[in-house]
């Protein structure tokens, strides 16, 4: 087994894959330098992220894949699930080894698995587009804290930019400690450490717009009023809104 260490970025992974071919590294095991702990057995090859090598991998893949399948590579990478590097490597190796297009060969285990991961990432992206609950501050910034299962901020940026074009907003991922900030012109990634407890009501009230509390209350009233008690179905409710998201949902924790 040959260990290939990369820096955890998507470009880093592409460079790693390039170098596996360049140095003919057999049976590679790609690991993220930020995650791996303990001793590593076998030969270790360290990758320096390289733009040119990345671009060459991209170019080759663009020839071989439909635009959709190509963009799914990055999406699945954002899942951050264990071993995603090696699944992606095996998938890419299979794509490059075949003369015909095999991106839809669901009889191949890696092709099918990547398709299934794509679906999970897409579901999480969609959930965040649904579950963001903005709160308005005194300086007219709409902000929201989320904790998605996968690193989906890069995937939801466009949706929020297109939709909320006329208001400043900030969406902060408290697990990954960075956010997206839109200043009415462009969206930028901002790193920060937001220690405030999202559910500390007294503190929130001090920074929020005077109407904020009223609209949260109205939303909760609305949410309660459109429920049909005679049709209660908590199993379905929880299936659609899993409990781990509740602490960030106004209607689920503004009960008073």
């Amino acid at each position: 087994m040959n260990i290939v260490i990369y820096d955890g970025s998507f470009e880093g992974l592409m460079t790693a894959i390039f170098e596996i071919y360049e140095y003919k590294i057999a049976q590679p095991n790609i690991v993220n330098s930020n995650k791996e702990t303990g001793s590593l057995f076998g030969n270790v090859h360290e990758v320096q992220t390289n733009k040119e090598k990345t671009a060459r991998v991209f170019k080759k893949l663009k020839d071989k894949l439909t635009p959709n399948a190509f963009s799914n590579l990055y999406k699945t990478f954002l899942s951050e699930i264990k071993d995603i590097e090696n699944i992606l490597y095996r998938y890419i190796a299979y794509i490059l080894s075949s003369k015909v297009s095999v991106e839809n060969d669901y009889s191949n285990a890696d092709v099918l698995e990547l398709q299934q991961i794509t679906k999970k990432v897409h579901r999480e992206k969609h959930r965040m587009e649904a579950f963001v609950r903005f709160q308005l501050t005194q300086d007219q910034l709409y902000f929201c804290i989320i904790q998605p299962d996968f690193n989906v901020l890069p995937l939801i940026s466009k949706h929020f930019k297109n939709r909320y074009a006329d208001q400043r907003w900030l969406i902060y991922d408290s697990s990954r400690k960075y956010g997206l900030y839109y200043d009415l012109e462009t969206v930028e990634e901002v790193s920060m450490n937001f220690e405030n407890d999202v559910n500390n009501k007294a503190e929130l009230k001090s920074i929020c717009d005077e109407k904020e509390e009223l609209y949260q209350k109205l939303w909760c009233i609305y949410f309660g009023s459109i429920n049909i008690a005679a049709r209660k179905n908590m199993k379905l409710h929880i299936q659609h809104m899993p409990k781990r998201y509740w602490r960030y949902l106004t209607e689920k924790n503004n009960v008073n």
């Binding site: 969609h126 587009e129 649904a130 579950f131 297109n162 939709r163 909320y164 074009a165 006329d166 208001q167 949410f223 459109i226 429920n227 049909i228 008690a229 049709r231 209660k232 179905n233 908590m234 199993k235 379905l236 409710h237 299936q239 659609h240 809104m241 949902l249 209607e251």
Partner: peptide, 21 residues
């Protein structure tokens, strides 16, 4: 640069009867 757009539809919440909001 106004407010909003409408395309695929998003369910933002689900009531306790399991219906989409």
């Amino acid at each position: 640069k106004g407010l909003g757009n409408a395309s695929n539809g998003i369910c933002h919440a689900y009531t306790e009867d399991g219906r989409c909001v």
